[in-house]
Simulated assay, not measured.
Amino acid sequence: MTTRADRRRILRRVTKVTAAFMVIVVLLILGFAGWLKSRNDGPDPVASVECEPFERPRTVEDINDFIDTQRPAPGWAGGDVGASTALADGRSFWVFGDTLRPSTDGGPTMVRNSILIMGDDCAGVYRPADGLAAIPDRDGEVGYWPTTVDSAPDGEGGTRVVVGLTRVKAVGDGAWDFQELGASAARFQVPAGGVPQLVEVFDIGPDEPDPSKPLWSAAAYLADDGTVHLYGTRRSEEDLVFGYSLHAARTTVPDLAHPERWEYWDGTTWVKEESEAVAVIEAEKGVSRALSVFERDGTWYAVSKQEEFLGSEMVIWTSPTPTGPFTATGPVASLPSDDEVVTYMALAHPELLPEKGSVVVSWSVNAVDPTTLQSDPKLYRPEFRRVPLP
Rank of each mutant, 00 (worst) to 15 (best):
V387N: 01
A20N: 04
F384P: 00
R261D: 14
C122K: 09
Y244G: 04
L100K: 03
K37R: 07
M118H: 10
E383L: 13
V60K: 04
F384W: 13
P209L: 04
T85W: 02
M345I: 11
E238V: 09
R127F: 01
L222V: 02
V368D: 04
I67S: 04
V14D: 06
A277C: 10
P320E: 15
A83H: 15
D121G: 02
F294R: 01
M1A: 15
L27V: 10
N64R: 09
E274P: 01
R39D: 13
F21I: 09
N113T: 10
V26F: 03
R261A: 06
C51Q: 15
Q306S: 10
R101H: 08
T252C: 09
D130K: 11
D173E: 15
T15K: 12
S319R: 08
T251V: 11
Q189S: 11
G78Y: 09
S184R: 03
F96W: 15
T252R: 08
D6H: 03
R12P: 01
V360D: 02
G205P: 02
G243W: 09
A134H: 01
T372I: 11
C122T: 08
I67H: 06
I29N: 06
G164K: 00
R101M: 12
Q70P: 00
W265L: 11
G194M: 07
S38F: 09
T147V: 11
